[in-house]
């Protein structure tokens, strides 16, 4: 269970998040939607203890991230970008993460297999394509076999096969009782994957509920999204 409660974040004089609250429940895939720069990544970074909130809280099973006993086994996170030094090999990257949480090296080979990177695990990360980088991020998130997954734009840069793989994978995770929170700006993709939807725009939540509730009278999620986000922004997307 992820609980975001009245989160406010200032950066300089700018207010990036102004009172965000929502929940991501076990057994469901929660989609976190919004245009570029709406505050999706900022929220996730605070949730993962990377940035400090100005006020409010983002809790994982009732605790801030830094107080988790074994973070890797509780939350698997894949943020935007590779999250890895370009000069290291993919395998070396996963190995130090595994080492930090006391996981075995065979687990590294397992996740490499799951995300389909076994063949390129010995290559420098700098040579990876965008899609391979995303897969590496997923592999790192899955290392500790966590009950909660937090993924920032997981399908960004993946090929059609990869997108389909991620979709079925996340559905399976949720159906076996895990919590999945993913951010995206790809509506069509999200519509087929998520159970609940949270829409954020200019640092404020503009919609929060099950997929059906959020779509409402609109024919698709995309239409609902534009209706909701253009109301208070005008023409800026």
């Amino acid at each position: 269970m992820l609980t975001i409660n009245n989160l406010v974040k200032h950066r300089g004089t700018q207010e990036i998040l102004s009172g965000i609250s929502f929940k991501a429940r076990p057994g469901r895939v929660t989609g976190f939607l919004g245009p570029n720069g709406a505050g999706k990544s900022s929220t996730l970074r605070i949730l993962l203890g990377l940035d400090h909130a100005t006020s409010g809280s983002a809790l994982i099973n009732g605790k801030p991230f830094a107080e988790l006993h074994n973070p890797l086994a509780t939350v698997g996170a894949a943020l935007d970008g590779f999250g890895a030094h370009r000069m290291r090999t993919g395998r070396a990257h996963l190995r130090w993460i595994a080492r930090a949480s006391g996981l075995s090296r065979s687990r590294v080979e397992e996740v490499l297999e799951i995300v389909g990177l076994t063949n390129v695990a010995g290559k420098r990360i700098g040579n990876y394509s965008l899609g391979m980088g995303r897969r590496l991020g997923m592999a790192a998130a899955l290392l500790g076999d966590p009950k909660i997954l937090v993924l920032d734009e997981p399908v960004n840069g993946l090929d059609p096969e990869g997108i389909r793989w991620i979709r079925t994978f996340l559905r399976e995770r949720a159906e076996s009782g895990n919590t999945v929170l993913l951010s995206s700006h790809l509506m069509g993709e999200l519509e087929e994957t998520v159970d609940d939807v949270v829409i954020i725009n200019h640092g404020k939540i503009v919609a929060n509920g099950s997929l059906k509730e959020v779509i409402g009278n609109h024919s698709t999620l995309e239409k609902a999204f534009f209706a909701l986000t253009s109301e208070n922004t005008g023409d800026v997307v």
């Binding site: 935007d80 970008g81 590779f82 370009r86 980088g133």
Partner: peptide
């Protein structure tokens, strides 16, 4: 060739 930044992946 390389910019160090915590936001983008270099």
């Amino acid at each position: 060739y390389l910019t160090e930044s915590s936001e983008s992946g270099g």
